[in-house]
């Protein structure tokens, strides 16, 4: 089994179990409140870390390149309540343009 398939199977299994956690295991009992707030923070935390690595990640450390103006333009679009797909297209276009010009 190649690395990619290990990722596919492991992530698939974990997600299947997480989604089933409520309906199969927990039933009607709520999560303890403090753990609920930890779980609630996981999504914004992980998504932010992904924004940072996807924008600044590169070989040998923090890299500032054509991605940054693209993501900045998308951030303005998101702030102006643009749909996600529009923000993605803006980020892609601006980055591609900067790559052509610079």
């Amino acid at each position: 089994m190649t690395d990619v398939w290990i990722v596919v199977v492991a992530v698939g299994l974990a997600t299947v179990l997480f989604k089933a956690a409520g309906p199969v295991l927990v039933g009607r009992r709520p999560l303890p409140r403090r753990w609920q707030s930890v779980v609630d923070l996981l999504a914004p935390v992980m998504l932010t870390a992904l924004v940072v690595t996807q924008t600044f990640g590169g070989d040998g450390g923090v890299t500032v390149d054509a991605r940054l103006p693209g993501v900045a333009a998308a951030a303005i679009a998101i702030w102006r309540k643009a749909p996600i797909i529009v923000a993605m297209v803006i980020a892609g276009l601006v980055t591609a343009l900067v790559r052509v010009v610079v």
Binding site: L50, A75, A87, A91, G92
Partner: peptide, 8 residues
């Protein structure tokens, strides 16, 4: 960059 925008 489009995927950074998606996560954002």
């Amino acid at each position: 960059a489009a995927f950074a925008a998606l996560f954002l």
